[in-house]
Design a protein around this nucleic acid. Structure first.
Length: 384
RNA sequence: GGGGGGAUGCCCGAGCGGCCAAAGGGAACGGUCUGUAAAACCGUCGGCUCUGCCUUCGAAGGUUCGAAUCCUUCUCCCCCCA
């Protein structure tokens, strides 16, 4: 595959023409991608880089996936920065454990080398850290966009966080990366990787940046912490519904980034959004599950009827049953106060009929389907 | 080390002695409408079997009939100087 083909749907190649030169060597290239296990789910945003990595694999190159179990520890100690939470080692471990299974939905396992950067950081001594950190200046590091912005907003930045770009750069040295992929916001780190590789006597990697996928709000970048993500391992109905949440003006960008081989949206936006949702669900589940998810969507959301499978919940029988309590225990409503509000706003129904009373007789509830809003259901079973 | 500013609910951000469970915005949630969990509009948005009560405005004390608002100490953050 040509350099031009491999660079399709990427944003920047640094330095320009570098990939072409590397491909000319004819040897399989080591293509690095780092992911920090700060959350258990891999979401659609991550899949952009993973799919580009797969393209490199299909072209005969080797994917070197770095699970940043140590870089993930480098969070924002003040806890202000939602994007860099401080995580405990066991939490990171738990997150990392599922990553391989999730990325294997996209990558070719036979051409994937998975490394954890704890491999080289766990045993790194202070002397080596001195050597590494003497290779960059604070001035350089503060040029990084988010550092600069945080300084502008007079927010704190811990010295620990300054190490992050250096550690990411050192990963490239440790795995002898030929190429590193990353979102456009990673350009600074990828470039630093080149400098550090040279400092350690290696030929610098080619940095290739990819666009950032906006989340289901169509505005902010997709992330777990922003709550605007679609996880690759979420159930089909969940994925389908979340895609339908997308604002119309983000639709073509999603098509371009997530389904580049599909015809771009041209017709009725509602239908085009459904088409995209089906494609995405089929991609991460069995073929045909997109259509089934759509049927579920039509039945439950559009036609407001009950889904095929309704989870059941048992409620202890009594002369009178306090509905707010049932909503909290059986439907996961956050508090009884919240439950009252939902009832008062007409958001709670029994077998399709809105309910306004707070206390009900058991026979009214027994076997009935309780619904909160559009998506929360439970079939109530009264037990003695 | 010296000087100045700040810390408010999920986030941003008003408030600076009683009318404050705390303006406004965002997010979220419910409803209406609809092509859809888009947009728009309306509403809700600390807890409690709730016209009342309880607990919140960095922490601990204090003043006061009454404090998010005043005082003291402490913790953390930012800016300027060194």
């Amino acid at each position: 595959m040509s350099a031009a083909a491999l660079l399709e749907r990427t944003v920047e190649e640094v330095p320009p023409g570098s990939l072409e030169r590397q491909l000319a060597s004819g040897r399989p290239l080591r293509v690095k991608l780092g992911v920090d296990p700060t959350a258990p789910d891999i979401h659609l945003g991550h899949t952009l880089a993973l799919r580009k990595l797969r393209e490199f694999q299909d072209a005969g190159h080797l994917a070197v996936l770095i699970i940043g179990d140590w870089t993930a520890r480098v969070g924002d100690p003040s806890g202000r920065s939602s994007t860099r939470p401080m995580l405990a080692a066991d939490e990171i471990e738990a997150n990392a454990a599922t990553y391989r299974a999730q990325v294997d939905r996209i990558l070719d396992p036979d051409r994937t080398e998975v490394r954890r950067n704890g491999e080289w950081f766990a045993g790194m001594g202070l002397e080596e850290l001195f050597r590494l950190s003497s290779r960059a200046t604070v001035n350089q590091l503060l040029r990084r966009n988010d550092f600069g912005e945080r300084i502008g907003r007079e927010e704190p930045i811990s010295v620990l966080e300054l190490l992050y770009p250096l550690m990411q750069a050192f990963d490239s040295v440790a795995v002898q990366a030929d190429i590193e992929l990353g979102g456009t916001d990673q350009l600074f780190n990828l470039m630093l990787g080149r400098e550090i590789q040279e400092a350690y006597g290696q030929s610098p990697q080619t940095a290739i940046t990819l666009p950032i996928l906006p989340g289901t709000d169509g505005v902010k970048r997709m992330s777990k912490s922003a709550g605007n993500y679609v996880g690759v391992s979420e159930p089909p109905e969940e994925q389908f519904g979340k895609v339908m949440r997308l604002p119309d003006d983000a639709l073509s960008e999603w098509y371009r980034l997530l389904e580049p081989d599909a015809p771009p949206p041209a017709g009725h936006l509602g239908d085009e959004k459904r088409r995209l949702a089906r494609l995405i669900v089929d991609r991460f589940h069995d073929v045909g599950s997109g259509e089934r998810a759509e049927e579920h969507f039509n039945r439950v959301i559009r036609d407001r009827s009950v889904p095929d499978e309704v989870p059941s919940a048992s409620v202890r029988g009594a002369d009178s049953i306090h509905l707010p309590e049932v909503l909290v225990s059986a439907l996961g409503v956050s508090s009884r106060s919240e439950a009252r509000r939902l009832i008062a706003q007409g958001g709670v129904s029994i077998d399709g009929d809105p309910v306004s009373e707070l206390d009900l007789t058991p026979d009214r509830l027994d076997g009935a389907v309780l619904r909160v809003g559009k998506r929360r259901f439970a079939r109530i079973e009264i037990v003695p």
